Computed example of a mutant assay.
Amino acid sequence: MTPVFAHGSLRLYLLSLLAEQPRHGYELIQALSDRFGGTYIPSAGTIYPRLAKLEEEGLVTKSTDGRKTVYEITAAGREELLAREGDLDAIETEVTDSVRRLADEVRFSVTAAMKSLRADLASAKRQAGKENPAPPSSGAPDSSSSIRLESNRALHEADLVLNEFRQQLRADLRNRAAVARVPAATVPELRRQLAEVRAGILASLGR
Rank of each mutant, 00 (worst) to 15 (best):
G206P: 07
R118M: 10
A171Y: 06
Q167H: 12
A119N: 14
R84W: 00
P135T: 08
A113C: 13
P183S: 12
R107N: 15
E72H: 07
S16K: 04
K62A: 10
Y13I: 00
N152A: 15
R11W: 00
A177M: 07
D89E: 09
R35C: 08
A195V: 10
Q193F: 05
L32V: 13
P135C: 04
H156I: 12
T2L: 04
D97K: 13
L155G: 05
R207I: 07
R67M: 06
R148G: 14
P183Y: 11
A83R: 04
K125W: 05
E189A: 15
Q127L: 10
L28C: 06
A158K: 03
D65S: 15
A185F: 10
V60I: 11
A185Q: 14
F5D: 03
A134M: 12
D120N: 11
G45T: 14
V4D: 03
L162G: 03
T46A: 10
P136Y: 10
T61P: 00
E164L: 11
P141F: 12
G66S: 10
Y26A: 04
R181I: 02
L54Q: 02
V95K: 01
R11G: 03
K62Q: 09
A140R: 12
R166T: 15
L117F: 08
L149K: 09
A19R: 02
R153N: 12
R198E: 14
Y40P: 13
A119L: 01
S145F: 14
E189L: 14
R126W: 03
L88M: 09
M114L: 14
Y71H: 07
D34V: 09
L32G: 08
E94D: 12
R181Y: 05
S145V: 09
P136V: 10
E189Y: 10
K62Y: 07
E72D: 11
A203V: 08
V161H: 07
S33E: 11
E150H: 05
K125P: 01
A75D: 13
I147H: 13
E56Q: 12
G139S: 05
L121H: 02
Q193N: 08
L162Q: 01
L18P: 00
G129E: 02
L102D: 12
L121V: 14
D87G: 01
E94N: 08
R23A: 03
T111V: 15
K68F: 07
Q127M: 09
R181E: 15
A185E: 15
L59R: 03
